[in-house]
Amino acid sequence: VKVFRALYTFEPRTPDELYFEEGDIIYITDMSDTNWWKGTSKGRTGLIPSNYVAEQ
């Protein structure tokens, strides 16, 4: 598990995607895809765009 911080707010387009706000901490559990990672924030899990976060 790696810890990342959201650089921007992300509004999901599908139920599989995770909503998060700029500054949120996201725990990444799967980075197997280059563009979409699986992450958890505020008790919810979903896909996030990798270019919206920076490693802490």
Rank of each mutant, 00 (worst) to 15 (best):
E22I: 13
A6K: 00
Q56P: 10
D30C: 05
T14M: 10
N35I: 13
M31G: 04
T29V: 11
W36Y: 07
K2G: 09
F4T: 06
T9L: 07
K2E: 05
G23S: 03
L7R: 06
G43I: 01
G46T: 00
N51Q: 11
G43R: 03
N35D: 14
G23I: 03
M31H: 05
T34K: 15
R13K: 12
I25H: 05
S41V: 15
R5L: 13
E55M: 11
K38R: 14
Y8K: 13
E17P: 00
E21Y: 06
N35R: 12
G39L: 01
Y19K: 10
T40D: 06
Q56I: 15
P12F: 06
T14W: 11
I28E: 00
D16A: 13
T29M: 09
A6G: 05
P15Y: 07
R13I: 08
R5F: 14
R13D: 09
T9E: 05
R5D: 03
E11H: 15
S50T: 07
T9P: 07
N51S: 14
S41Y: 09
P15F: 08
A54F: 11
K42T: 06
I25K: 04
P49A: 05
I26N: 00
R44K: 13
T45W: 14
K38C: 15
W37A: 01
F4R: 03
A6S: 03
T14I: 08
V1Q: 11
K42A: 10
Q56N: 12
A54S: 13
D24C: 07
F20R: 01
D16I: 08
K42M: 10
L7P: 00
V53P: 02
Q56M: 15
R13E: 10
L7H: 03
K42I: 02
V53W: 03
R5Y: 15
Q56F: 15
K38G: 06
E21S: 09
D30I: 04
E22T: 10
E11D: 09
T45P: 05
G43Y: 03
N51A: 13
V3A: 11
D30P: 02
I25R: 04
P49R: 06
S50V: 10
Y8T: 08
D30N: 06
T34S: 14
Y52H: 07
F20P: 00
D30K: 03
E55W: 10
G39H: 02
T9A: 08
P49M: 06
E22V: 14
K38H: 13
S32W: 06
T14F: 14
G39W: 03
V1W: 12
Y8G: 07
D24V: 04
E22M: 13
L7V: 07
A6C: 03
G43F: 04
G43T: 04
S32K: 08
Y52S: 11
K42W: 06
I26V: 08
T14D: 10
A54N: 07
D16K: 11
S32E: 08
S50P: 12
N51E: 11
R44D: 04
K2Q: 09
R13T: 14
